[in-house]
Design a protein around this nucleic acid. Sequence first.
RNA 1: UCCGCCGUGGUGUAAUGGCAGCACGACAGCCUUUGGAGCUGUGAGGUCUAGGUUCGAAUCCUGGCGGCGGAG
Length: 365
Amino acid sequence: MRILAAMSGGVDSAVAAARAVEAGHDVVGVHLALSRAGGTLRTGSRGCCTIEDAMDARRAADRLGIPFYVWDFSERFRDDVIEDFVAEYRAGRTPNPCMRCNEKIKFAALLERALELGFDAVCTGHYATLVATPDGPELHRASDQAKDQSYVLGVLTADQLAHTYFPLGATPSKALVRAEAAERGLTVAQKPDSHDICFIPDGDTRGWLAERVGAERGEILDRSGAVVGTHEGAHAFTVGQRRGLSIGVPAADGKPRFVLEVRPVSNTVVVGPKDALATAEISGERFTWAGRAPASAAFACDVQIRAHADPVPARAELAGGTLTVRPESPFDGVAPGQTAVLYDGTRVLGQFTIDRTVSAAPVPA
RNA sequence: UCCGCCGUGGUGUAAUGGCAGCACGACAGCCUUUGGAGCUGUGAGGUCUAGGUUCGAAUCCUGGCGGCGGAG
């Protein structure tokens, strides 16, 4: 097959490309330039789109003896990922930009261009596995549960999965990938894992948002509506958050307070006890299926609410264009804007963006 | 004016004669390709003030200052 290997400049995508070559495919490496602003050059290997990273990717491609190109997707990245990110925070929601990037850039813009150029598939260093079936590929969790990235790939559709290649998914651990990188003479073998949001140079998400969303002082309320403090911009908060409230005065019960709600219109943040985060139901209209759609409108599944949450057993129901999920036991702190990924065991069924939540805790007197 | 109660880190409290403890908040680290959560750790008060009793005072006594409640 003709494979286009997306190379971020990190260990994983370099080893993935190497395995694609070794498997006998005709591989071309490409690095995505996602930002053209000089100021976003991140040192310390924190991102996936710095000039350093592009150089690392090129060195890896050279080592593998494959052609290498840099494609500029910065405009689409700005429009589809960064602007969406800002708009969501303006609306008091908590977006997941990595999922938008997978949905719109890596497995959309990049994949489309690859297909146009005659490639059969795009290869990435994601930790997830594809299982071939007569109905097309299924997306499953990776063998290394600690590194599993199937959650952020939950946005992929059947068409996208049909042209996708994840060589690392069956590897038992990341340590083996690093060891393999070292054996293959790849200079990125010991490069630190990337984390945080790649387009925020110093990792200061609040500061970055303050410049774009606009930071305006507002009130922090408790559930009775009493003012318990002030904040310097509602964008700095997300449902379930505990730190950074700086209220100074303890709650009456002396227990920690968590953000229960962010109200962008009034620029207020509502706080309360941990119990009040319990969520009995989530729903949304923006959903996709990773492969074939479910056979019936109501079905059992496991639902994962955040990238680092444990999946919980639940019932899903599709009615009138709305997907609703009710967990067997309540979710703990669900932020609208986040993505719920539905699993059947290790298989990803699909995902939706959480638009509404229903509390499991009665509002106190 | 009188009577009563009270004054301890940023906040709320514990210790009623013997090393000033706990919680919340703050900060740091770990974890993590989203935001959070979670875990670990750290700093900060000689106890409103001036005297007194005592080997020893947050604690007992006296005055002052401040707060709360009651009594026309």
